[in-house]
Design a protein around this nucleic acid. Structure first.
Lengths: 191, 191
DNA sequence: TTTACTAACTAGCAATCGTTAGTTTTGTGT
DNA sequence: ACACAAAACTAACGATTGCTAGTTAGTAAA
């Protein structure tokens, strides 16, 4: 795999621009300007504009799936698994905010093959998440809620995190983690 | 305000395309094809491509803010206000799924003036939401959580709803509402 | 019947798009 | 000092972009 430092820099700069303007509205010339070079020079490092998006989105998807695999294979009880998945999500978002921000919308711009690959990983992640939640219910850790709706609800919060993180980036990641786990699992209502 | 039926149809068709491909990647010619006309004819109904996005986004923002204003002026206790805001959010998402789906990402393509207007309404909505949550805490309806994080958490779920709704559109909106209110406010953990 | 208006059309422009071809510069190991 | 490869450059192509100009058919009021 070609991962020269200049190429990595290009990917990061592109991710930053894609985040601010969207993939389609960001031109090759915009990226070149950020790299302080002329646009044709980019093609010494990449093979197409879409390849940038592929690398960014698929590497993030692999990161999530990899983390989920580790959790699934661990001997933790389901509620601990849930907490670890949430913690992983927060960590990845903080470490790769720009690339993560592309996940919700810009996968539509992938070509057929990459889009399929991406969506398969996403589906697999969702499926694993539901199964953890299901196990939590069966072992009486949480109430017998609708698993579909609860999964959607939690994953929405986690997937939206990027949009909120930079505005409040002075926040302590650990506080964010404990507070989110409490809200998402424990709820808000006073007991 | 010019709201001829053909113009309304154009707005709906455009919203549908913007949702599927994103605003920047949808061309005027794409919209014309969906309307079964040639692209210059569109300009008998609109003044620019961006005007379409303005109308879609600002009308949605006004809908949300209007609903929030009604709730804020009502004599309900804060927990009931919270429930009504959630219910309103779900209803608007179901009734205007395509336009709502543009809110998270495509506001960046508005020009300076519209973007400011849009973001002001969004900020105002968020501020009202936080104040309701704050009142819930002060009147001991919910635990003393971090209001910022809890607001973000709930609004994320509500704002992501559109992406999930069409996949599961056979679901009973009322079930969705009660289940979401329970998850978001009450939490999942068994008591 | 004339007049005015709406909403469609054809033709095409200037700008920008992603990308390629061919060339020169730069840096590195011998 | 020299050879070679990596990485930059200039020039430009064909396609597509949002949009304008000018025209025409249909409709309704005067």
């Amino acid at each position: 795999m070609n991962e020269s430092s200049r190429r990595v820099e290009l990917m990061q700069k592109a991710a930053n621009l894609f985040r601010k303007k969207g993939y389609a509205a960001t031109s090759i010339r915009d990226i070149a300007k950020a790299m302080e070079m002329k646009s044709p020079s980019l093609y010494n490092h990449i093979k197409s504009k879409e390849e940038i998006l592929q690398v960014l989105l698929l590497s993030m998807a692999e990161l999530y799936v990899k983390g989920m695999d580790d959790v699934m294979q661990s001997p933790l009880n389901p509620i601990k698994k849930l907490e670890r998945v949430i913690a992983d999500h927060i960590r990845i978002t903080i470490e790769h905010t720009n690339a993560v921000s592309l996940i919700p919308s810009d996968w539509v711009h992938l070509d057929e093959a990459s889009r399929t690959k991406f969506l398969q990983m996403r589906d697999r992640y969702d499926k694993d998440f539901r199964s953890i939640l299901q196990a939590c219910i069966e072992e009486d850790y949480i109430e017998a809620v609708d698993v579909e709706i609860a999964t959607f609800s939690i994953l929405s919060t986690l997937r939206w995190l990027f949009s909120w993180y930079n505005k409040n980036s002075e926040i302590n990641p650990l506080l964010l983690e404990t507070e989110l786990i409490r809200n998402l699992i424990g709820g808000l209502r006073a007991s």
